[in-house]
Amino acid sequence: MAERNLEQLEKIREAVSQDLLSGRIELLLGWEKGHYWWQSRPLFASSEGDLARLTWDSFCAVNLSRYLLDELKDHQKVGVLVKGCDSRAFNRLLQDNMVQRDRVILYGLPCPGILDYNLLAAEAGSKLKGITEENGQVILKTEDGEIEVNRDEMLMVKCSECLYPDPVVYDQMLLEPLGQKEVPERFKAVNELEALSSEERFAYWEKELSRCLRCYACRQACPYCSCRECFVEQENPRWQGRAYQPSENFLFHLVRAYHGAGRCIDCGECQRACPVNIPLQELNRKLIKDINELYGDYEAGVDAEKEPPLLTYRPDDPAAFSEK
């Protein structure tokens, strides 16, 4: 991985530094290395010096599009590096009128998926010192030698079922596209949950949501949660209580999920952000599946021109609630 990525990184840096220097953009949202080789965190680059810290590797998980909500307040024109999911997040914000297309330059980065350090470390057994990548394989460098594993099996959950590795909207594609992916297992977990009785399903979610701290990391990382004031914080009337009752946990997660119906781009940032590993993507996927079945296939964020099904009306829309 290292060498391929260095080459790619140079290409990226060249393109963005030209634009930063020429004033085409005032700020670039990218990634830089964190404390360890398996951490890449957001970089806010406004100078050549900042760009020296730019990185592009298999750990650039953070979705940068959301930062536009704040950065467009302070900057006239912002550049963003976008993976497939980040580009769909951008479309989400665009459709919600939260960003202006002409104030953003999108640099497309086809992404083969982000690696999950926990999976790598578990596979390594002994201490993992680093990795390289080659032909769809990851080579783990451990204290006891090298181990080769299939890259696809080391992906974060949010990436293992990604349909769109390539950016769907961009001003400049900086790397070679990878093509759309087949994901036959996308609704596997949802199907399994649907097969349960309603009591079993309730018990499942009650247990999973019982860990919820209501830190709201899922909401804060989410590109569809861009409301300036969330119902959670509204005081008069107060919808969301602070108690850690199951009913309050359900209220938050269900209202959030329904608010994302037809709008969730399935980027999985909610689940990645959750400190107690609640399988939030299953909730969102259930709604994606339902919307697809009710209103025909729709992929949120793929085409900004195509209105979300719940924001449009067709005379032949199913209306089960009014029948009987």
């Binding site: 965190r41 957001p42 806010f44 953070v62 959301r66 930062y67 701290l213 209501r214 830190c215 709201y216 990391a217 909401r219 804060q220 990382a221 952000a273 400190p275």
Partner: peptide, 14 residues
Amino acid sequence: ELYKSCLSCGVCTY
């Protein structure tokens, strides 16, 4: 500079 990446969630504090 430091705050820029902060998402305003409560993970760190919790």
